[in-house]
Design a protein around this nucleic acid. Sequence first.
DNA 1: GGGAATAATAAGGTCAACCATATATAAATT
DNA 2: AATTTATATATGGTTGACCTTATTATTCCC
Lengths: 226, 226
Amino acid sequence: MIAQHLSESTEMYLKAMAELSDHDNVVAIARLAERLSVTAVSANEMMRRLGEQGLVTHTPYKGVALTVKGREVACNVVRRQRLWECFLYDHLKIEWSQLYELACSLEHATAPEVTEALDLFLGHPKTCPRGNPIPDADGLFVPLSGIPLSEVEVGKTVRVLAVNATAKDVLKYLFERNLLPGHEVKVIEAAPLQGPLTLRLDGKNKDVALGLSLAEFVVVEENSNQ
Amino acid sequence: MIAQHLSESTEMYLKAMAELSDHDNVVAIARLAERLSVTAVSANEMMRRLGEQGLVTHTPYKGVALTVKGREVACNVVRRQRLWECFLYDHLKIEWSQLYELACSLEHATAPEVTEALDLFLGHPKTCPRGNPIPDADGLFVPLSGIPLSEVEVGKTVRVLAVNATAKDVLKYLFERNLLPGHEVKVIEAAPLQGPLTLRLDGKNKDVALGLSLAEFVVVEENSNQ
DNA sequence: GGGAATAATAAGGTCAACCATATATAAATT
DNA sequence: AATTTATATATGGTTGACCTTATTATTCCC
């Protein structure tokens, strides 16, 4: 199968689908539109086009899903994205909260030979600085087996596996509070009515309040200690 | 002056102008169109648009020239291009003849903070693997003081300073014949009627024939020995 | 079962960057 | 000076990816 060049727009839609799809792989077009900051009409049009290209399937009133071919492309886009994040962070010392955005521009301009040479240069990294797995050249990767911090029971202590946010301001906010892969978080309290969590980081004294919708972005390991 | 994002197309036009302009800085629109593989009509349209943005000036029937602002942008594009060439060659071990093309895609997707971090990472290189100078963050660089190999007198021995070609096949051809920066070339013979040059490389026995228009791409130092 | 919310489609518009064809104008050459 | 050649402009068309404003269809929930 010859990989003709797909537009930046196409790659962004496919990547967003891969990032948003859970269990059944289906994504509501409205969610996609939201993530990509376009109108629902535009997203619908795009889905028709991608459908014609055999990259997605659309079940009206249900949502869209990646085809095998679509998933292949999406994984490759994610691969490029996360490899660039590694490079920008480890070698260029770019600020953590800017990684996603800056790597995103580069990913669409990266030829296969550059992707593979970069992977080799970086020593075949398994995860990006945000903690997410990097698909290999065949699109394979070990999915994160964690749960959102928002679902952790009060009193438990867990370790952060990854941060799934993409927006720069959200990343900056989490970075400033040290909610980064590898850090330990104890859930001290969960305020009622979707109120914020109170967290204790790395056993330190100072506690941190975190809104529930922000806590959804933070993926932590499921099995806690004590 | 706030640097709003210019389109890839705009950057390519400005870069081509910087690469094609000689002495008086003026480029014929037909040359530009040729280099960018678009029709003269398209190039004319684009020059009107760039003129409105204050990036170029167009003197009808004479040609176009970069304004100060346009030159600033162009130098920055060239800077990004050549820094990426260094990275791709020195660190990713990408094939020499592919450097221009692959770096070209990346250059348009490179934010200022990445450019500067890359420059630092690379140790502020002065030239790219093709031998061309890399403008600094202010757009300053020492222009090459060389002449095309096509203009060297028969019998003289010169050193290659840079290769100005951009097309992959041309670069591959020159690479295979070792016409690379740093190598020594003796012009053995120049065939009449725009015929090819006969060259001796690095004092080796085997001679190389090179068409005149190809020899124009090879920039060599002016002052020869013997 | 009926209405509210959500989703899809239809119709028409914009914008950048291309294209072709035709005509007008300046420059260069004889 | 006249012709050829190069350059410029006018006109109209295309494509991808957006947009808005209806209108229609479906699903969900009381």
